[in-house]
């Protein structure tokens, strides 16, 4: 069944059960997002980008966690929404090594897109730059991981899990030091990566790249 919702004064229709975020994106209304994938039954809501304000609800809420309801009135561009989105982006950029020219994601990078959309410079002032010491983790036989590019969105973990039924990637460490880990697997025969590379394709910031000279 279709329900009608109003987004930024514009009436749109969406299938019952879809999230507000998907409804907006499907109707050409861009809401910034980094960790959402349509195939997720339970979106992590971890990037805190897809915030919107919904009439009758308190404060900005992530639109990936809310299902559309008939007559819902949604605003995607309010000042509180933009303030939090900009703040989140500035935080992500404060741990991101901005070296676009040398980055394979250049021109298709989600951070670049958001930076343009939210009008936040790629090297914003205010927060000091906090980069991790190791620029690259090359333990894996087929992949390189670049912690200073990673935005910990978890898309790679999700696609790996859904493609193979079990993840060959996982979150590791905690808090500020959270990274993506390959379980320390070095035995190339135990990994389906060469024929897959779904994680590399899905990564919005080229934090996972194909090893140029696989061992």
């Amino acid at each position: 069944m279709m329900v009608k919702i109003i987004v930024d004064n514009q009436e749109i229709e969406a299938e019952e059960g879809t999230t507000v975020l998907k409804a907006c994106l499907d109707n050409g209304i861009y809401v910034p997002n980094l960790c959402f994938l349509e195939s997720m039954t339970n979106p992590p809501a971890s990037c805190r980008m897809c915030l919107v304000e919904i009439e009758g609800e308190k404060g900005p809420i992530p639109s990936c966690t809310i299902e559309v309801r008939e007559g819902m009135v949604i605003r995607t561009e309010t000042a509180p929404v933009r303030r939090l989105q900009r703040s989140a982006l500035r935080l992500l950029l404060s741990v991101h090594e901005v070296d676009c020219a040398a980055c394979p994601a250049n021109k298709k990078c989600e951070l670049q897109r958001l930076s343009k959309f939210l009008k936040v410079g790629l090297k914003p002032k205010g927060f000091e730059l906090l980069l991790k010491e190791a620029k690259r983790d090359d333990e894996h036989p087929f992949l390189d991981y670049h912690p200073n590019r990673c935005i910990v969105c978890g898309k790679c973990v999700h696609v790996c899990q859904t493609t193979h039924g079990r993840p060959f990637l996982t979150f590791a460490k905690r808090g500020f030091n959270t990274t993506i880990s390959t379980f320390g697997e070095k035995d190339a025969t135990k990994i389906p990566c060469p024929t897959c590379m779904a994680c590399v394709e899905i990564c919005p910031v080229a934090a996972l790249t194909v090893k140029t000279d696989p061992q």
Binding site: V95, I151, R174, G175, N177, T178
Partner: peptide
């Protein structure tokens, strides 16, 4: 130190 590291604000914001 006790942040789980999942969401942007807590993971990076508390460190700043």
């Amino acid at each position: 130190k006790e942040s789980c590291g999942k969401c942007t604000f807590c993971r990076i914001g508390t460190r700043h």
